[in-house]
């Protein structure tokens, strides 16, 4: 009997590993080994025909810190994250509150908010290109009605990054809305009634009751928005290509450019390692601190 139990246990262990093996092999091939290789190749110099690649330690990182484009893309990405995260959260929240209230044509309103979410970023960029084109574009035509001159939104360093930011917000706000909408629908109606009896204004009710109850959703959405601010760069390929003079270049686009336009893999690797570090810290904060605090949900 004891032998049978032990046999059964061993069989289950074997099955467990067997079931997991495809996932583990694939994750190793396309996530863990590449991560390790990224770190490894960031420690070697770029090999040329005359100078074979050699170990340089932190050399690539030093080069990167000395590279003015690097600081430019980091600052750009911080602005990109710093604007897109809070603005899309606020718009998503407003959308959800409206889409949840008893307004006429609510179905249309919800569809309008959500539709950009299912478009490819490339298509979104093509659509917005029409808006930004100098002279002929929609924005300029609207501006002309009010007597403003033509502005090259995508071609000027002061406006290019903002043009990119607007497309990102347009694309992601509707997606975040549905999470708020779902959370709003779980708030028990008695809370609203109680607040009404107490004479609380709508604003007080929203600020003191709704917003705190939506906190876990906000954290979830914020983490997603943060990840998006690293990976949503497809529209750069259509709208600005990172220009003019790097004014709208973001970190991931620069990684792509370093690796596939300048063929400087070690520099790309060093930059990738830094992005992975930032993502790792985010993951740690999310798992260790936030998940523990939001247990009550």
């Amino acid at each position: 009997m004891n032998d049978l139990a032990r046999y059964e246990r061993r069989r289950r262990i074997m099955y467990g590993w067997m079931l997991l093996s495809p996932a583990l092999i694939l994750l190793s091939l396309f996530a863990f080994i590449p991560s390790a290789m990224t770190f490894w190749s960031s420690l070697f110099s770029r090999g040329t025909r005359r100078n074979p690649s050699e170990f340089v330690g932190a050399g690539n990182y030093e080069l990167l810190f000395a590279d003015p484009t690097f600081s430019k893309v980091v600052v750009n990405n911080l602005i990109y994250a710093g604007v897109t995260i809070p603005v899309s959260i606020i718009i998503a929240l407003a959308m959800a509150l409206w889409a949840n209230s008893k307004i006429p044509a609510r179905g249309f309103v919800r569809t309008a908010f959500f539709t950009p979410t299912i478009l490819p970023m490339i298509a979104a960029a093509n659509i917005w290109l029409f808006f930004y084109t100098p002279g002929l574009g929609v924005l300029d035509q609207i501006g002309a009605l009010f007597g403003f001159g033509s502005v090259n939104w995508l071609g000027r360093p002061e406006t290019a990054l903002w043009a990119v930011i607007i497309v990102t917000i347009w694309k992601e706000a509707g997606f975040f809305m549905i999470f708020y909408l779902a959370a709003l629908q779980t708030i028990p109606p008695d809370l609203k009634e109680a607040a009404d009896i107490e004479g609380a204004s709508r604003w007080t009710y929203t600020r003191r009751i709704v917003l705190p109850l939506l906190m876990p959703t906000t954290i979830f959405v914020a983490v997603n928005a943060l990840i998006n601010s690293v990976k949503l760069i497809d529209h750069l390929f259509i709208l600005t290509k990172g220009g003019p003079s790097d004014a709208s270049k973001l970190v991931l686009y620069y990684i792509w450019e370093l690796a596939f336009s300048y063929f400087d893999r070690p520099q790309a690797a060093a930059l990738t390692v830094m992005v992975l570090l930032v993502l790792g810290i985010t993951a740690a904060i999310k798992f260790i601190i936030l998940d523990r605090r939001t247990h009550y949900q």
């Binding site: 262990i13 994750l27 996530a31 990976k231 690796a259 990738t272 993502l279 798992f287």
Partner: peptide, 28 residues
């Protein structure tokens, strides 16, 4: 399935949520 190391493995799998495939373009 109950087996030793399962929970550690699960956390390792979850790590991939943050190691975005988009970021690993060069080595992939």
């Amino acid at each position: 399935f109950q087996f030793p190391g399962r929970d550690v493995l699960f956390i390792i799998v979850l790590l991939q949520l943050f190691i975005l495939p988009e970021v690993l373009i060069v080595e992939n």
